[in-house]
């Protein structure tokens, strides 16, 4: 699991790559939330480098999304590979979390 992030104004784009499964899902959530700053209003998670996400990974994404929602902040994910996109589509999580084709789309959305 690797992270990098890029902040411009109140928008934070986080790149996550590697694999998220039961063994590192809680670390994933902690690292992700550790990057948020109070001024961030729009958080975009770029999963273009993500190879695999298990149900435990989906669950922590949902926790992050709900936490941000409670603070009236926007959260979206983008650039899903085909395999990861399938996981979101089949689980129905694409109906719960905003999914965009690219970072640019997510910024506009």
């Amino acid at each position: 699991m690797e992270f990098s992030h890029d902040r411009s104004g109140d928008t934070l784009v986080v790149n996550a790559s590697g694999r998220v499964d039961g063994s590192n899902a809680s670390d994933f959530l902690e690292s992700l939330q550790g990057m948020f700053e109070p001024g961030d209003q729009k958080i975009i998670l770029d999963l273009g480098g993500l190879e695999y996400i298990s149900s435990a990974g989906l669950r922590v994404l949902l926790m992050a999304a709900q936490n941000l929602d409670k603070q009236n902040k926007s959260f979206s994910i983008c650039s899903l590979t085909e395999a990861v996109g399938d996981v979101f589509r089949i689980s129905g999580f694409d109906q719960i979390i905003n999914v965009f084709p690219s970072v640019a789309d997510a910024k506009q959305g």
Partner: peptide
């Protein structure tokens, strides 16, 4: 074919 729906337990009134 898949049917329309979401994993159970996370969102109301699916």
């Amino acid at each position: 074919p898949l049917t329309k729906g979401v994993a159970l337990g996370i969102a109301p009134d699916v």
